[in-house]
Simulated assay, not measured.
Amino acid sequence: MPRPEPPDPALLDRPQRIKGRGAASNPAGRFETRTRTTEDDGWYREERDAPRPPTEVREIRARSIISRNDSPDVPFTQSINPIIGCEHGCVYCYARPSHAYLNLSPGLDFETKLFAKVNAGERLRAELARPGYVCSPINIGANTDPYQPAERRYRVTRQVLEVLAECRHPLTIITKNALVERDLDLLAPMARDRLVQVFVSVTSLDNRLSSTLEPRASAPRRRIEAIANLTAAGVPCGVMVAPIIPAVTDAWIERILERAVAAGARTAGYTVLRLPWELKDLFRDWLDLTVPERAEHVMSLLRQMRGNRDNDPRFGQRMRGEGVFADLLRQRFAVACRKAGLERTRDLRLATDLFQPPRPASPQGSLF
């Protein structure tokens, strides 16, 4: 058999759609100390399927668990992220570049090489017991989703909720996975004391689009069902239409809000797609593979909202953007919320006066 002609090396490294994954490549992160090149072994076939990398979860012991921020763009100052990386594989995830700090790729590595903080409950208990701790709502899921598939096995989020429930500490949750229903036995009693609010993120109501945009998250229909089930159990719910991607998901804004209200959502919010660091190239790959006929138009609209740049990291601008199209989205969202009867508020109105610090373990036990 004659040996096939070697292909152009660029073809070996080109992005390829991988079923069940959001990223189409695994580019080096900006801090990596090693570089990778692909070499042809003489058996390359143009038509071969892209390899499907498995999910690997490493158990780690965190030194601290509560992260703090002073950003004016978010309504909380404390957050917990139970797992580093996210198997949901949302191609638009602004957390992807954080994997570069681990000498890993923000591409496929971010959704296949995960780190579960298996001592999260232990560390949280210690931090809440510190004499100087000041109670304020803790957000779970600000960076990566607390109910991604790995949570079924590792139950790190469950650990965190058990400690917060015991201490009567207020919290908020952001997720796009119906697995949040598993913890209703903890969330419902906390809700009766105004200690919890859940926000379910919905980007569109198109299953086919969702399967490429956020391949391992719950289907849009299940997220709406989760809002209904949480509401029925007495847990206050909001919907996050986030992120809005112009010319891709913005057509769904009004219908998402209508469905969310029918399911019981009380509040709503939105953000516009952000493309920090390596994310801009990963998203461009997704556009070229999924909606090539609109790729340039989408990027043009994004740049119009970001001062003619792919990304604008400034506080006050990064979440909503600026310019004509950003103003149009703002007006559309406000009108849609008014028509649906949804409240838009940054005041979470959660109780902080019920907090009871955990008592340190003592071999003598407790007298009171």
Rank of each mutant, 00 (worst) to 15 (best):
A10R: 10
P15M: 07
Q16V: 09
G22F: 02
P27G: 02
E32M: 13
T33N: 15
R34H: 13
D40P: 14
D41A: 14
R45Y: 02
E46M: 15
E47A: 13
E47D: 15
A50L: 01
E59S: 14
R61A: 14
R61Q: 09
D70A: 15
Q78D: 15
S79R: 07
S79N: 11
P82L: 02
C86K: 04
E87C: 00
R96H: 07
L108M: 03
F110K: 11
T112W: 11
K113P: 08
N119G: 01
A126S: 08
E127Q: 07
L128R: 01
A129I: 02
R130L: 13
V134E: 14
I138R: 01
I140Y: 03
N143Q: 10
T144P: 03
A150E: 12
E151M: 02
R152M: 04
R152G: 09
R153W: 03
R153N: 14
V156N: 05
L161R: 13
L161S: 14
E162M: 04
K176Y: 00
A178T: 10
D185Q: 04
L187I: 00
L187E: 04
P189A: 04
M190H: 02
A191M: 09
V196G: 06
F199N: 10
P220Y: 02
R221W: 03
R223E: 01
I224L: 01
E225L: 05
E225M: 00
A233Q: 02
C237T: 13
M240Y: 10
V241K: 04
A242S: 14
A242N: 11
P246C: 05
V248N: 06
I253Q: 07
E258M: 03
V261R: 01
R266M: 10
T267P: 01
V272A: 12
L273E: 03
E278Q: 03
V291F: 04
E296W: 13
H297C: 03
V298Y: 06
S300N: 07
L301S: 00
Q304L: 11
M305C: 08
R306E: 00
N308F: 13
N308P: 07
R309C: 14
P313R: 03
P313L: 13
P313T: 13
G316S: 03
M319Y: 06
A326G: 05
L328V: 11
Q331N: 15
A334H: 08
A336S: 10
C337T: 12
E343S: 12
R346V: 06
L354Q: 05
F355L: 00
Q356G: 02
P358I: 12
P363T: 08
S366E: 15
F368S: 08
